[in-house]
Design a protein around this nucleic acid. Sequence first.
DNA 1: CTTGACCTTGACGCTGCGTCAACCCTCCAT
DNA 2: ATGGAGGGTTGACGCAGCGTCAAGGTCAAG
Lengths: 262, 262
Amino acid sequence: MLTISQLAAYVGVTVRAVRHYHQIGLLPEPGRDTSGYRRYGAAAVVSLIRIRILANAGVPLSRIGQLLEADASTFAGAVEEIDRQLGDEIARLEASRKQIAQLAAGDRLALPPEVITYLDRLRDIGVAERVVAGERDGWILMAARWPDRVHEWMPGKIAQLDDPQLVRLYRILSEIFESDTGDDARLVEAADILAGLAEQAYRSGEIDLGEVGKDDLPFDLLDALAVEADPRVERLLDLMRERGWAGLARLERLERLAKPST
Amino acid sequence: MLTISQLAAYVGVTVRAVRHYHQIGLLPEPGRDTSGYRRYGAAAVVSLIRIRILANAGVPLSRIGQLLEADASTFAGAVEEIDRQLGDEIARLEASRKQIAQLAAGDRLALPPEVITYLDRLRDIGVAERVVAGERDGWILMAARWPDRVHEWMPGKIAQLDDPQLVRLYRILSEIFESDTGDDARLVEAADILAGLAEQAYRSGEIDLGEVGKDDLPFDLLDALAVEADPRVERLLDLMRERGWAGLARLERLERLAKPST
DNA sequence: CTTGACCTTGACGCTGCGTCAACCCTCCAT
DNA sequence: ATGGAGGGTTGACGCAGCGTCAAGGTCAAG
């Protein structure tokens, strides 16, 4: 008769595992000797080995009990199902691996490569890192809402960076948000340029976003994100409203001019 | 400002997950409104998205916090390590899949194919299913102790089945253990044949097991297994001892004849 | 008799949440 | 004003498969 540690050693499992199998009813509790120690016979060794064979094959403990008493066809069916589950699990992990490889390659953000390109172009133009980081977070929001559309938009966005007006705008914004002073004249200047660009886009019809434009939340979030990053953006929003435009990430023409808010 | 369910819906996670991230300090607790509800700004949305990007890539939650604040090289190193871990996990699962495929193919026991062949030969010879099952369990014990040696032994074992004496022995044992009567004459007959075979093997030197023979435990287990399967085996052991042999699975010559035990 | 190795039960820890439970808040229709 | 639906809150258990103390009782050897 074997003690629990001898049993465990023969089969190559831990004592704790054996006791666990007792707890869940997978391996029957053996008789005890006078001092209360568990004593195992050879049949228990065989049972434990068969349990481990299935467990090593990835069968969940909760199913091993049934499998050990199943007839051949039930067994085959169960094995097939477990194989499918293992396959799914492997597929999930391999998908994870691809994801993480992209993380390592990209700007460590898993943004589409076009967006990375766009952000790098901004840096080239001389845009401040804080502003680039804001843009990056904005595109994270966009990519989360419309993962498949973002790469359609980026060529247009990159092309827009050839517009000298836009470049000037970004540079002024960089100056503002890099300094800690509240230089209102600069903000007014930015608002004027932005309003001009909006007017131009509006007339050329570019501003039509299709059904994307109907979902307000992402654009509200983008504006809120900018305000959270720097409260002076609130003032910029006011200035835009004075000029007949609501919002910032998505500019909308106001029907009647709003009074400047207090 | 968003409620927790709006935040969760935007990012595509459950409310419970968001609260979990608060609990483990991965996502900072936001401010509360007058009624105690959590209220989230846009920055929280971005944080949550970034958390999910890493989590979907298989990064454990406990490491995501560090990763989000890591510089580029730290990040790259960590990503590499996580990729290795994912690779290990995938390898483990694929090993499991192979195992389970073998289970489905074999006698649903993961015994080496030679053993399956041997057991089938026993059935062909007319050995009772109970006895075959006993042999099977015995080989499970052997395969657990010497997984690499079993297939070396099987050709010899299979060849032995051509010996008419051995076939007769198996048939007598089948008769004995299929009936519920204690037919002692049959047991004596079996013991005589077995002793004869042992004598023959001993003289031809076949009985030398090398270093395998030095490990008593597996052979003790085999004998115990037989006794547990049918107590009449105890009588068989006695009969063998009377004939100068100890054990059953591995027969050893006794120096001086033991008195028959009571 | 002591020491060290082994046995016992009981209980918490890990991962990433799912799922009650029991209760409070808000808004809308009646 | 009220009631009900559909939010929100904390607290706690459950899941898989054991690892790892804790706080003892037991056994074999020196």
